[in-house]
Design a protein around this nucleic acid. Structure first.
Length: 508
RNA sequence: GAUUCGGUAGCUCAGGUGGUAGAGCACUUGACUUUUAAUCAAGUGGUCCUGGGUUCGAAUCCCAGCCGAAUCACCA
């Protein structure tokens, strides 16, 4: 244990020896927050010129001690509650009992440490230097801290000194990160604002929020490697879901016309600054709609989310400005490839596509079919160029086994992906609802699997049965919520928008 | 998974061509009854990530490992 931890444990014992409970059970009747005081406090000046502090004569507030400044028989502290920090001012005479100054001299000055929680009763005033502060009349220790916090200081110019910046420590000890780095808290508040905005949008338009299984016997709905687990009582394997698509569609079969779910998905793949093993996709499915309708709805949803979250449709990201004002650009995947490479792949067969890939130095493996090859070419030459929100539409049928064939363009499906800042943030279809064709598409996936594609989809027989009972036409979409949160909060790393990003377990 | 960079006090970091471990803040003791990166004075605090090797001697050089970050690959 470090010297500072030993000191704190010693202080804890001394507090107990004074007959003070360092972890009292009673509720503390807080009646105001730091932000409210700062926003609303004013010293009222009467007509005769004297000051009369009417506001905040009896404040009760609680928070964590973030700074202490002793000044002889007086003392200043900064405490922080969920809304921010506020300064405390206390005098020895006023916290003592007659001539016994033990409380101030021993408890307040010696035994309280940075990080302790205290409850305060007092009145608000402005110091000589103009800082709105609380003149403390009563102080209650609410919880003792036994570890020293990292000390982050900000000077008058707003420069940060000794910031707590080590990403490993920040992610492993997010609680400390949130305490000492206020901007981190803002990022997460913004994320929740965004999610609330989207949820409100969907609810207002008749969407029904539902929950579907995370543990699935067949991991369907996306091309991805699943986590595998085991149920003891049933003695069967289960997979953590990679997507919830097939379950939401079952609910549309069941008669709901608009269902949505913020789905925590799990994919057993690489991790980097845009991938976490568990992440959130919002999926929703709407009966009787097609992907054109879905494009318009997506534009409206994102425009509102940007306004609610950032206060503007021009969202700053690094040195770029992303414009979420509807409508967004639209371009087919073939046009996108041709625009950025000059190559027209629309009529090419698999062999010709392989030649193109070779020229572009794209790694190939034998399991790749025509659709996958086009996807690779798009990823190589075009994807990174779509900074402003852009719908990329009409993908080849081979890479979209759950999507309806295009109404007029042979070999293509009615699908779009939304790209923004060079990254995919949404993926939507006019959904396939022909059970016979769906069975054939699944069988093509099985062939891909036999060819070595370990991400190809399994046949979900119950899903096919559901479709055979009659599935209305519909359109569906999935939004990468973490990536959207990154865009709206200006973060380049997914770890900055997840409270607890996955890391190798710490060894104690 | 590959490559590169990093790991030194509670925090942020310096140092290092092999020879007693450094700073600021924090912490301890003292002064100061409106301070605010408070100030002033004096102190405490280290498995220099771990394990091997080379050497009279390793925090420093070499090898292996652990953990993280960045880039790349796969993926959303």
């Amino acid at each position: 244990m470090s010297e500072q931890e030993l000191v704190r444990r010693d202080n804890l014992q001394k507090i107990k020896d004074l007959g003070i409970n360092p972890y009292p059970p009673e509720l503390f009747p807080v009646n105001v927050t730091a932000a409210e005081i700062k926003a609303n406090y004013a010293e009222e000046v009467l007509e005769d010129g004297t000051k009369n502090r009417l506001n905040y004569q009896k404040v009760v507030i609680a928070g964590r001690i973030m700074a202490q400044r002793e000044a002889g028989k007086a003392m200043f502290m900064n405490i922080m509650d969920s809304t921010g920090t506020i300064q405390l001012y206390m005098k020895r005479d006023e916290l003592g009992h007659g001539d016994d100054f033990t409380f101030f001299d021993v408890l307040v000055k010696k035994l309280l440490d940075l990080g302790d929680f205290v409850g305060i009763k007092g009145f608000v005033f402005n110091t000589k230097t103009g800082e709105t502060s609380i003149h403390v009349q009563e102080l209650t220790l609410l919880a003792k801290a036994l570890r020293p916090l990292p000390i982050v200081k900000r000077d008058a110019e707003g420069n940060v000194h000794d910031a707590f910046t080590d990403p490993e420590m920040r992610y492993r000890m997010r609680y400390v990160d949130l305490i000492v780095n206020p901007e981190v808290k803002q990022t997460f508040l913004k994320r929740t604002k965004m999610v609330n905005s989207i949820r409100n949008f969907l609810n207002e338009r008749g969407g029904l929020e539902v929950d579907t299984p995370v543990l699935q016997p067949i991991p369907g709905g996306a091309a991805a490697r699943p986590f595998k687990t085991h149920h003891n009582a049933l003695d069967v394997p289960f997979f953590m879901r990679v997507a919830n698509e097939l379950y939401l569609k079952r609910l549309i079969v069941g008669g709901f016309e608009w269902v949505y779910e913020f789905s925590r998905n799990f994919r057993n793949e690489g991790m980097d600054r845009t991938h976490n093993p568990e992440f959130t996709i919002l999926e929703f499915y709407v009966a009787y709609k097609d992907y054109f309708w879905m494009m318009e709805t997506t534009e409206q949803l994102l425009e509102k989310a940007a306004l609610d979250t950032c206060g503007t449709t021009d969202v700053a990201f690094g040195d770029k400005v992303l414009n979420f004002k509807a409508p967004f650009h639209r371009m087919s995947i073939y046009q996108a490839i041709e625009k950025h490479s000059g190559i027209d792949v629309s009529e090419m067969d698999e062999a010709a596509l392989r030649e193109v890939c070779k020229k572009l130095h794209i790694e190939l493996d034998p399991s790749m079919g025509r659709g996958k090859l086009i996807d690779e070419i798009f990823g190589e030459v075009a994807e990174k160029h779509f900074i402003q929100p852009t719908f990329i539409t009409d993908h080849p049928v081979e890479m979209s086994p759950l999507t309806k064939k295009h109404r007029s363009k042979p070999g293509l499906v009615e699908r779009f992906e939304l790209y923004c800042n060079g990254k995919e943030i949404a993926n939507a279809y006019t959904e396939l609802n022909d059970p016979i064709e769906q069975r054939e598409r699944f069988e093509e996936q099985v062939k891909l699997m036999e060819r070595g594609d370990d991400e190809a989809m399994y046949i979900d027989h119950d899903f096919l049965r559901a479709m055979e009972y009659g599935m209305p036409p519909m359109s569906g979409i999935g939004f990468g919520i973490d990536r959207l949160a990154m865009l709206f909060t200006g973060q380049a790393s997914i770890q900055e928008v997840l409270f607890f990003p996955q890391m190798r377990p710490e060894v104690f």
